[in-house]
């Protein structure tokens, strides 16, 4: 290609600046979790692993983690069931209101979280009198998780076509056998990628959770938020934050291996 050397170097430099912009703050969080100063003055004068051992035995963190895992797994399960069946319906059938339903499924992540949050909270409290707790968190999370499973499954189903299923049926397999032996194995990695993303969204969600969590329930993001402005909790918050930064490498690695349909793992 005819791009001058100077332009190449300039672009490379801009790429470097961009990556620095992305990674310097994240690195600071990780480094700060070892900073021995309680006020986290920068640059750190000495390092310690004291905060890490304290954080691991911190009951608040442990409890928050278990709430987050419970909410994440339940929401992911619901999203997998609803998102996949919707993807089947949209990819394999024509029906009235198809455009509307495919728009509706995107709406929960397109609208600001605060709107979804107060709408659900209002519905739970005022309209149906459902007291807020883990169940309401799961309902809220599942609502915006459906779309990522749906996107992944739909892309795969469209790419797959129907010829494999038709061949299977022609060879005498019935609908259930075909689904079990042909459709599901072909769909599996897309569902895994979608489920992973759904879990990631749920695990990280704070806005909708703020409005749908009952009293006494703190998911991990809510715990971080509640302790963010408490100076004596700052070391623990730093460790939790650093852990979340480091752990984020795992899903990105998995999703890159799983999904060939899109670079973003179906987030878009």
């Amino acid at each position: 290609m005819t791009i001058s050397k100077r332009a190449r170097y300039a672009l490379m430099a801009l790429m470097g600046v961009g990556l620095a912009f992305i990674y310097v703050p994240l690195s600071v969080v990780v480094i700060n979790s070892f900073n021995s100063s309680r006020t986290f003055s920068w640059p750190p004068s000495s390092f310690t692993t004291e905060w890490w051992s304290k954080a691991i035995s911190n009951t608040g963190v442990r409890k928050a983690l278990s709430w987050s895992l419970a909410a994440g797994f339940s929401a992911t399960l619901i999203a997998l069931l609803l998102g996949t069946s919707l993807a089947f319906a949209v990819s394999r059938y024509n029906f009235f209101g198809k455009d509307i339903i495919s728009l509706l499924v995107v709406l929960p992540i397109s609208l600001p979280g605060v709107v979804t949050g107060i709408a659900l909270s209002n519905a739970f409290n005022q309209e149906i009198g459902l007291s807020t707790g883990l169940l309401t968190i799961v309902i809220g999370h599942a609502t915006f998780c459906i779309v990522v499973v749906y996107n992944n499954a739909l892309a795969r189903l469209r790419r797959m076509g129907t010829s494999l299923q038709e061949a299977s049926m022609d060879l005498g397999a019935n609908g259930i056998t075909t689904f079990r032996l042909i459709t599901l194995p072909n769909l599996a990695s897309a569902l895994l990628a979608g489920g992973l993303l759904a879990f990631g969204l749920s695990f990280d969600e704070i806005v909708v959770t703020t409005f749908t969590a009952g009293p006494g329930i703190e998911t991990l993001p809510i715990w971080i938020y509640n302790n963010l402005f408490r100076p004596n909790q700052a070391p623990i918050v730093n460790v939790v934050a650093a852990t979340l930064v480091v752990v984020s490498v795992i899903p990105i690695y998995l999703s890159q291996r799983l999904s060939q349909d899109s670079t973003s793992g179906g987030r878009f």
Partner: peptide, 30 residues
Amino acid sequence: LVALVLTPLWASYLVKIYAWRTMLEPNTGV
């Protein structure tokens, strides 16, 4: 590079803003 750009999407939203609190802290910030 794609993976490098995508990774922060998985890092917690709250942690990223918290990181900027440490970055932007007047005088003592990074």
